[in-house]
Design a protein around this nucleic acid. Structure first.
Lengths: 210, 210
DNA sequence: AAATGTTTGTTGTTTTTGCAACAGAAAAAC
DNA sequence: GTTTTTCTGTTGCAAAAACAACAAACATTT
């Protein structure tokens, strides 16, 4: 995700003042946080990639959301309980800011520039978040695996300003993200290729229609 | 959705000052807005019920979101284009505030209390919005119609603090909301009843498990 | 109160998806 | 540089969901 938010400047501010915020580092495959009860935890991913995943009772794994630089997440967005376990897992090395959502609105004892910067840029981060969630819902409401794939490819193509692009997931993860069975998805990918809707070399896709 | 936002007070403020905001009324089945291009339109539903619906090329209708009192919606949350038509349709009589998202951050010429009230309560409305979207994604990522139904019923039961509750949609709309075929959903409802997971009288559901 | 339209409930058939299992390719670990 | 693990690609079969079509119940309009 790209926006005008300058993370370097932000981090500089952070380092020099604020005592209400934790900055933590995580390695690949570590659990950043689990959504257990509402501690109003609010996180900003400063660098790296992470997924919010759910493991249901049948052992199905679903990628509820995929986070990259500047994305926000946290328990504060999940006020109503779920029966399933929700975890945020680091896919790469990650730097994360963690704090209590309601601390943003109250100034810290040091009255620091970090708070100022944060409250200034937070609306933008939140707007991006809502846009992402809405797009995700649009994808997930598509009825067939084919429509989900084409919808997602369309999105990637638009973002890359190119008919050719690389899927930023493993195909296994893509299936979990689109919430479909992997083998069924692979079959559909093959059909899309056979019917000349797309071209495919590994994770590189080219849209052939329109 | 319930929160501490006082709409009456809000409307009072609005009436007495702000010139950047339109308040409009819609009748049942009227189109409140269509998401065509990005005009940064931002809306607050003050009263009534409305749905964001998509009609795809096959004529499938999907309820992308369902809005009730205090919900926010608008093009500003859909920056990337979709191929399908997205419409917000009034399900009942609706009162809606409509304005440009970026006008919230700049004070109006009258420097009115409306802006003050809005910027005070907006974070709360937005937090609710994100919570709703996240719950919707959790529902939609469930693999089977059964899990979607039970997940949704669970939600309604939690909200109503009661094992018995009424589905706030027509069953036709519920299918569109869960993004499944209506007849398949009806069949699944019958199975859930036969297997004593739920009791069902028309749109009144009782959870029998746990 | 009759007529029209919409929603609910149902079922047979077709299509799509999920499940399971496996082999080869690629990546990661040692 | 070899071993181990994960990922990709494929397929047969079973299960689930979509499609289609219709009648009865319920609402709405006139």
């Amino acid at each position: 995700m790209t926006n005008s938010f300058n993370i370097d400047e932000f981090i500089y501010d952070f380092k020099n003042c604020c005592n209400k915020v934790q900055k933590r580092n995580f390695n690949k495959d570590e659990t950043i946080t689990s959504y257990i009860r509402n501690r109003n935890q609010f996180c900003i991913l400063i660098s790296g990639n992470a997924d919010l995943v759910r493991y249901d009772l049948n052992g199905n794994r679903t990628i509820i959301e995929h986070f990259s630089e500047n994305d926000i997440f946290g328990e504060v967005f999940y006020s109503i309980t779920t029966n399933n376990e929700l975890l945020v897992e680091a896919k790469t090395k990650c730097d994360v800011l963690i704090y209590n959502y309601y601390d943003i609105h109250t100034k810290c004892t040091k009255n620091c520039k970090f708070h100022q910067t944060l409250s200034e840029y937070l609306p933008e981060l939140i707007l991006n978040k809502i846009t992402d969630l809405n797009m995700r819902i649009e994808l997930l409401t598509k009825r067939t695996t084919r429509d989900k794939l084409l919808g997602y490819f369309n999105l990637l193509s638009t973002r890359n300003l190119n008919k050719t692009f690389k899927i930023p997931f493993s195909l296994t993860d893509l299936a979990d993200y689109l919430s479909v069975d992997r083998s069924a998805m692979m079959r559909e990918l093959k059909l899309l290729k056979d019917e000349s809707f797309i071209d495919k070399n590994g994770k590189e896709i080219t849209l052939l229609y329109k």
